[in-house]
């Protein structure tokens, strides 16, 4: 039987979709079935990583900003 501390160690694998052996998966599932604290931990860790993912800057640069960067590149060979 896994201890809660071990479930917390392994929760990252669940979040990341890391392949687990049948035995590891079964041990986690059994523990999570009976332990609401660990269920809460996994659920909230998942929400937290999802929240972080939404912080990624997605807006592309505008053309003026792109031009400013390109202006510092060496000129194309003539």
């Amino acid at each position: 039987m896994l201890k809660c501390k071990e479930v917390v160690q392994r929760a990252d694998a669940l979040i990341d979709g890391t392949p687990l052996s049948f035995g590891e998966r079964l041990a986690l599932r059994t523990h999570l079935m009976i332990c609401r604290h660990c269920r809460r931990y996994v659920r909230q860790l998942d929400a937290l990583t999802e929240h972080l993912r939404q912080q990624t800057p997605v807006a592309p640069l505008d053309d003026g900003e792109v031009d400013a960067i390109l202006a510092r590149l060496p000129p194309p060979p003539s």
């Binding site: 201890k3 501390k5 917390v8 604290h37 809460r40 931990y41 909230q44 929400a47 937290l48």
Partner: peptide
């Protein structure tokens, strides 16, 4: 170390379990 280490008892089970919260 692990930032949650102090929240477990000596037997490896939760001493101070996570609170319930949501980010939405």
């Amino acid at each position: 170390g692990d930032a949650l280490a102090h929240r477990f008892r000596g037997d490896g089970h939760w001493q101070t379990p996570p609170l319930t919260w949501t980010l939405h």
